[in-house]
Amino acid sequence: MKKLPLFLLPFIPFWGMSQTKNFIDQAHIETTAKVDTLVSPDRIYLNITISEKDTKGKISLEELENNMNTRLKSLGIATDKQLVLKDLSSNFQKYFLRQQEIQKSKNYSLIVYNAIMAGKVMMALEQINISNISVEKTEYANMESLLLTLKSRAIKKASMQALAMTKPLNQSFGKALYISDNSNVMSPYNNRMLAIPMKASKNSSESDSMAPIDIEFEKISVETEVRVVFKLD
């Protein structure tokens, strides 16, 4: 392999730097634009734990599980699609002579599509000794499409800002030399215990004298910010 003459070596990095700096050295204008919106969640994931411990061992896990499945189906929930088993655990609580008592528990994830159904689930399961329910997370189904829309709006806003800054100078801007974006989705729920406000229901039995108020879950905040560098003509 031939060695380059020493007097040429120092010029190689500077040549590379000059190529890199071509973008920066052009006359340009830089602007940042931010757009945001709020959307109602349409995917609400409930974390449900059923345990023999909650009934002091009086009701078996299998019976609790069957009762839960029946109640959820009565609400119109497709348990084969909306209910997923997360884990199974057994806790060794007591020992009686040579026999040991095992209190089992199961953890499920249930997806519902609005706050009213979430409230109905909580009420129905409380009536069968299942009350360990929390909101695992909330989502918006069309989030990807929404983010693309927000990015497009942010780019248009950045272009308008560039126009507003160059017009008073009797200058114009050209093509974009550089674009970057950053998006942020803020869901207000993360493993929070579910507490749905209730109201009295007139035409109902004693065991079902309350109904969830017609409310919505707190909305999801979605924000997109773009940084655009335009060439100055």
Rank of each mutant, 00 (worst) to 15 (best):
M165S: 10
G119N: 00
K86V: 15
G119W: 00
N184H: 13
R153L: 09
L125N: 00
P188W: 04
S109R: 09
Y95N: 13
N184Y: 10
Q161A: 11
Q127P: 02
S183M: 05
N107E: 06
V112H: 03
K175G: 05
I130W: 00
M143T: 07
I116K: 06
L147M: 08
N184G: 02
I133F: 01
N129S: 14
K157N: 14
I116S: 04
L148V: 08
S172A: 12
L125V: 02
A124I: 00
S109V: 12
Q161S: 11
N91T: 14
S172H: 12
A164C: 02
Y108E: 01
A124T: 02
I130G: 00
E101L: 12
K156A: 13
K120C: 07
N170M: 09
V112Y: 07
N107I: 08
N132M: 07
Q100H: 06
I128R: 06
P168M: 08
V121E: 00
K151F: 03
L125H: 01
K86D: 15
Y140H: 07
Q93L: 13
N184M: 15
L150D: 02
M117Y: 04
I111P: 01
E136K: 12
P188F: 03
K120H: 06
F96L: 14
N114R: 12
K86P: 12
D87F: 09
Q93Y: 11
A176S: 15
K104S: 12
P168W: 09
N114M: 05
A176V: 08
Q93D: 11
S134E: 12
D87P: 04
Y189H: 03
L125A: 00
V135W: 00
T166K: 01
K157C: 03
A162L: 01
Q161F: 10
L88K: 11
M143R: 00
S145M: 10
S145E: 10
Q103T: 13
M186Y: 08
V185K: 04
N91C: 06
N170Q: 09
S152K: 06
